[in-house]
């Protein structure tokens, strides 16, 4: 058995670690409320933008735009993956990285050329180590993403798409459900279609429903119009809108704004998921530390008792020698 002094040192070291994990849990708990309220506020904005687009789509479906144009060959796929900058958040990073990797492998498997835009140091380090082709890396956004950051990223994505370097853009992020639950999802960011609002938990389903569309279908190889965005939805019955300055100018301005707000929403979801995952991870780390400390205290007492018993035995045997 170890000496009591050594066990005491171990107890101190573990209780120090427990203090850190507790503090991290408390910090994450204080951050989660803010992150949740930011998601709610952003959802109002995103909903407003979507509403305007669907109203335009209902009444003026014939208008087209480069961001609605479906690719002809659909060869180059750009995947935007959102990971975190910091660790100590349980399986958050490994889950999203596995999801991105799964999507990349499946797309390569069906003969597509895949490029990656990675947000977050964790993802960057992993994909660089594996040797993937990284188109762009963004760091230090996961703590407090701003709308301006999202605009910066979406500007780059849109330029890549419009220049023809990417025929399709997919967005991979972690959807926030509640502080204890989050799930990695994938969605189509560009071209904007009625699929754009659908998030897929299973990469295979996304590939089946979006990538493998026959070219004679309205979503493949042809130019989509805004009416494609509201397929299967009921329009509000009302006279036509008055547009200022003009419908095409509004559409030119609002579609990039839609991409900005979708990326912003994904960044906020990922931040909240990371914080939630950190709370769970730090809570279980603190609990584990408490259990280990309990065991070590028992060990310490046993070792101390053993030492005392040994000392008493030595004293008694010494006294016996003297008396005899």
């Amino acid at each position: 058995m170890e000496k009591p002094e050594k066990i005491q040192k171990r107890i101190k070291s573990i209780s120090d670690t427990q203090k850190i994990t507790r503090a991290m849990k408390m910090i994450a708990s204080s951050k989660i409320k803010k992150a949740q309220s930011r998601i709610m506020e952003a959802r109002d904005f995103i909903y407003g933008i979507e509403n305007i687009i669907s109203d335009i789509a209902c009444f003026s479906g014939f208008i087209s735009n480069p961001l609605l144009k479906s690719p002809g060959n659909d060869k180059n796929i750009l995947i935007v993956g959102i990971t975190s900058d910091k660790g100590l958040c349980g399986d958050y990073n490994s889950n999203i990285i596995r999801h991105i990797e799964n999507a990349v492998n499946k797309l390569i498997g069906i003969g597509k050329k895949v490029k990656l835009i990675i947000i977050g140091k964790r993802g960057k380090n992993y994909f660089k180590y594996i040797g993937y082709d990284l188109d762009m890396v963004y760091e230090n956004l996961s703590d407090y993403p701003k709308f301006l950051d999202a605009r910066e990223i979406s500007k780059h994505i849109i330029s890549r798409y419009v220049e023809g370097n990417a025929d399709r853009v997919l967005l991979c992020y972690t959807e926030f459900i509640n502080p204890a639950e989050n799930t990695p999802v994938i969605m189509q960011l560009l071209p904007i279609s009625n699929y754009s609002k659908t998030v897929f938990r299973d990469v295979g389903k996304l590939i089946n429903s979006i990538i493998d569309i026959p070219s004679d279908s309205p979503h493949g190889g042809t130019e989509n119009t805004v009416s494609g965005l509201i397929e299967g939805k009921v329009c509000r019955i009302f006279p036509e809108f008055v547009y200022d300055p003009s419908l095409s100018e509004i559409l030119d301005a609002i579609l990039p704004e839609y991409i900005d707000s979708t990326v912003y929403g994904a960044l906020l979801d990922s931040t909240a998921s990371e914080t939630g995952a950190r709370i769970t991870a730090m809570r279980s780390a603190s609990d584990n530390a408490a259990e280990i400390i309990k065991e070590l205290i028992n060990m310490y007492h046993k070792a101390r008792q053993q030492e005392i018993t040994l000392e008493i035995a030595e004293v008694v045997s010494g006294a016996g020698i003297f008396s005899s």
Binding site: D55, F238, F241, V242, Y243, D244, E249, I250
Partner: peptide, 19 residues
């Protein structure tokens, strides 16, 4: 402050989308 100039909206105005 619409892009093409200031625009006033009263209840019952036609539906408007403006930049």
């Amino acid at each position: 402050p619409a892009k093409s100039g200031s625009m006033g909206i009263l209840p019952g105005h036609l539906p408007v989308i403006a930049q």
